[in-house]
């Protein structure tokens, strides 16, 4: 299984990566990963996670990601070419505005392009599902767990052991949101 996490800054990516790595460990899956941060604390951060035996490259080849979880629309567009034909692209329906090089602005029309191009794309209002500032990543992970068909009891056990009550509730809401 190949997964990408696309984030701005990296706090949400850290939460999701930690949970997925722990999941892989409990399922006794081999793992390789890569996490490149561009432009410091406010920049794009793309995390590659690869689970299974005999994995070589720590980065996912183009067109081979089973799932991408993105916390921003632009970052989803930046990583969409990694998705495999039947892959899942879960996007927090939000524009995270930061500065862009050479005076560029946040592009328009990315969401409609992705909806047109990709069968397995899902835009969700992560903040509404989270209901608390620290729970966006947990809510998104809940939805991602369901979409990817991961073993919910194992993932929930991890969340219960590592997260607060807001995050546990957000995980459950995320899981139930996309049926």
């Amino acid at each position: 299984m190949n997964v990408l996490i696309a984030d701005v800054g990296g706090k949400n990516a850290e939460f999701v990566a930690h949970a997925l790595l722990e999941y892989g460990d409990r399922k006794q899956l081999g793992c390789k990963m890569n996490r490149m941060r561009i432009a410091g604390e406010s920049g794009s951060i793309i995390t590659h996670l690869r689970f299974g035996e005999n994995i070589c490259s720590p980065t996912v080849p183009f067109g081979e990601a089973d799932g991408i979880i993105s916390f921003d629309i632009l970052e989803a567009a930046r990583t969409k070419h990694f998705l495999c034909p039947k892959g899942i692209l879960l996007v927090n329906d939000k524009k995270i505005e930061t500065g862009f090089a050479r005076g560029a602005t946040y592009p328009n029309g990315l969401k409609s392009e992705m909806l047109q191009e990709i069968n397995g794309v899902y835009f969700i209002d992560g903040d509404a599902l989270a209901q608390a500032e620290d729970s966006l990543s947990a809510a998104m992970l809940g939805a991602f767990t369901r979409l990817l068909g991961l073993d919910k009891p194992t993932m929930l056990e991890i969340i219960v052991q590592t997260s607060n009550s807001n995050q546990i509730a957000a995980f459950e809401r995320g899981y139930l949101f996309l049926k």
Binding site: A39, G43, A77, R78
Partner: peptide, 12 residues
């Protein structure tokens, strides 16, 4: 696939 050319974020 050639990745789409998208704006690059810079430090805040």
């Amino acid at each position: 696939p050639e990745p789409e050319k998208l704006p690059v974020r810079i430090p805040s």
